[in-house]
Amino acid sequence: MPKMVLLAQYLSLNGTNLSDDTRKAELTFEVEDKDVTTYGSLGWKVLLGGLKSGELSVEFLNDFAATKLDSIMWPLLGTVVAFEVRADAGAVSTSNPKYTGSVLINGWNPIEGSIGDEASVSVGYPTSGAVTRATS
């Protein structure tokens, strides 16, 4: 199986390609476990999958210039927007699937860091609704 080094991740929020501002993007999912154990399980716990949820975590390098990252993200605060993320900015394929869905922009940290730090912003947005994986 081939290995991969992430060199050109792709991230789009609300239809805007933010790859040039993105240092790191992580998309994670989980499923609630529901305990349906009965006496008939003879002391073994029995679980079923419940609701699914996800989170898109991003580390941006911020830019306050007109039409740049801060001016793009600020108006989105409190809204649900479309996202697309993939491991490489190249064409979508079986070896470069895209994940799409919606996230709630539930926070924005325009200024964080200490003296001498780069102006980076770390955020985590919960998914809202289904997320799809496509290879074409």
Rank of each mutant, 00 (worst) to 15 (best):
L18E: 03
E59D: 09
E26S: 06
T37R: 11
A87S: 13
T67A: 04
F64I: 15
G49F: 02
K52D: 07
L7A: 11
T37E: 05
K68P: 00
W74K: 13
E30D: 12
E26T: 12
A87V: 11
V36A: 04
E55C: 05
A87T: 11
T16R: 05
S57I: 04
K45F: 02
D21E: 10
G43T: 10
G40W: 06
G43H: 12
S53Q: 09
R86E: 01
V5L: 12
D70M: 06
G78A: 08
W44A: 14
T37L: 05
V85T: 12
E84H: 00
T16W: 01
L48V: 14
D70P: 00
Y39I: 13
T38A: 05
L6M: 07
G49N: 09
K68Y: 01
L77H: 02
L6N: 10
A8E: 11
L69P: 00
G49P: 06
L7E: 12
A25Y: 03
V46R: 08
A65I: 08
L47I: 13
V46S: 05
V36Y: 04
L77Q: 05
D20Y: 05
L6Y: 10
F64P: 10
S12K: 09
V5A: 12
A66N: 13
E55S: 14
T67R: 10
R23T: 08
V80M: 05
G78H: 03
L56N: 03
A65E: 13
R23N: 09
L51P: 02
T37N: 07
M73D: 00
L42Q: 15
N14F: 00
D20M: 11
F64T: 14
M73A: 02
F83G: 00
E59V: 15
V46Q: 07
I72P: 00
